[in-house]
Design a protein around this nucleic acid. Structure first.
Length: 430
DNA sequence: CTAGGGTTAG
């Protein structure tokens, strides 16, 4: 009960003081960790569980898999998979769906699909999970093909399925298909669009650069648009450098979410990219007046399977020299590419205030510019390409993608992005 | 024989 409410510490105390613990108590505690973003603790507790001779059941492994998914701990997930086979939990629909999800979210869509095809039983959740897996990895066509197959085989899509389908269209630039599915969902399948569906449509239109359409779409919504919808538009305005629409979306978000720093960061990005220093300063002031605090930015970069994290302002890390060398190399590449540094690109002699400005519009290039310092980062997340950049990373990704001449994948504190053909697919990753 | 799986945004 405590664990479900997010009070994992209280739950743990109670758990530790319970003399007779059965599988259900262990499951509840592991679930508490896994569902509150404490994947590592969940996995650690499982080690303890095994040491104490307690046998996991099919419910235990579902939570453990969820922990692996949130940590993108693919190797651990694979170990669990073999344990699932050994213990005979494989045929459980829920376990199967969770496994498929784990593989897909770790970027292994092919493995996920093979598992999915071999499942003895599939329900609407299994189908939706696999479709979402494709969507999150930018495989829009595969997602839509599976959606067709699902219907052919007689499973009726529900509102979550449609959310995944629309997200697949958005992440793959399938604008017309997305519009079609949105319409047919209402007319032919009796699914009333929710705010999630509207957010997907705004994302779809916004990503494709149809910002005016996206704004019009919001203004015609029959339900009250929430902050997520406006944030989606603001994000799209940032990505396409549209200051006017960005400003309008920003004003809406700030009214709905007074303490969120994200809209300030996004609007700052727009103004910084457009060189509007006056506007940038105004936003900073407005943020101060509203008492909104910036969450320190953290960016990661992976080069040849080595993952490094960067935190603004931390110059004391022992590995800072090696990282600095790697950053210098990347900066050199950028310059060769004819990239023109803006704002405070030059690291050593920036004023503190400039740093603040840039931090407001924190982006990877600015992170690099500040010589943000590495802290080595535990388990590298599996990725097919050997270079990754993370952070509030849109601009940086474009640049670095161009430099290395191929698609790259990106992560920030919460999301995994894969850039392909100018579109970015995002999924939860952290 | 209860628990457990899929969705949106930056």
């Amino acid at each position: 009960m405590y664990a479900k409410c997010g009070c994992t510490e209280d739950a743990r105390e109670l758990f530790d003081n319970t003399s007779e613990r059965d599988v259900v108590s262990w499951n509840a505690m592991i679930a508490g960790y896994a569902q509150n973003g404490l994947g590592k603790d969940a996995l650690a507790l499982y080690e303890q569980m095994k040491q104490e001779g307690m046998q996991p059941n099919n419910v235990t492994v579902v939570f453990l898999l969820k922990a692996c998914t949130s940590l993108a701990a693919l190797e651990k997930g694979k170990q669990l998979h073999s344990e699932i086979i050994k213990r005979g939990f494989e045929s459980d629909v829920v376990v199967g769906s969770t496994l498929v999800n784990m593989y897909a979210k770790c970027g292994c869509t092919e493995d996920a699909r093979e598992l999915f095809d071999n499942m003895s039983e599939r329900d609407v959740v299994s189908w939706t999970g696999m479709i979402a897996g494709y969507a999150q990895n930018g495989l829009g066509k595969e997602a839509l093909a599976l959606f067709e197959q699902m219907q052919r085989e007689g499973t009726k899509p529900n509102e979550v399925t449609y959310t995944s389908v629309l997200s697949a269209c958005a992440h793959s630039g399938l604008v017309d298909q997305g519009r079609y599915f949105f319409d047919s969902m209402c007319k032919n399948h009796g699914v009333t669009p929710t705010k999630e569906h509207y957010a997907c449509m705004v994302d779809l239109l916004g990503r494709a650069g149809c910002l005016a359409d996206a704004e019009l779409f919001i203004n015609k919504m029959p339900i009250q648009p929430n902050s997520v919808v406006w944030m989606t538009l603001l994000g799209a305005a940032r990505n396409h450098g549209h200051a006017e629409i960005g400003r309008r979306a920003f004003d809406r978000v700030v009214k709905l979410e007074t303490k969120n720093a994200a809209p300030y960061a996004l609007l700052s990005n727009i103004y910084a990219a457009a060189g509007k220093k006056d506007e940038l300063a105004k936003i900073r002031n407005q943020m101060k007046e509203a008492g909104v605090k910036r969450i320190p930015g953290c960016s990661w970069i992976e080069v040849d399977n080595q993952l490094h994290a960067f935190v603004v302002g931390d110059a004391t890390h022992p590995q800072s020299k090696e990282i600095q060398a790697e950053l210098d190399r990347l900066v050199g590449l950028m310059k060769m590419e004819g990239y023109k540094p803006n704002l405070s690109f030059v690291l050593d002699d920036v004023e503190d205030e400039e740093k603040e400005n840039a931090f407001c519009g924190h982006s990877e290039k600015q992170a690099i510019a500040f010589g943000l310092i590495n802290t080595s980062f535990g388990t590298p997340i599996r990725i097919k390409k050997n270079l990754r950049v993370c952070g509030d990373c849109h601009n940086a990704t474009k640049i670095i993608s161009k430099i290395v001449g191929r698609d790259i994948s990106v992560m920030d504190a919460n999301r995994y992005h894969h850039f392909k053909d100018g579109f970015c697919s995002c999924g939860d990753y952290w």
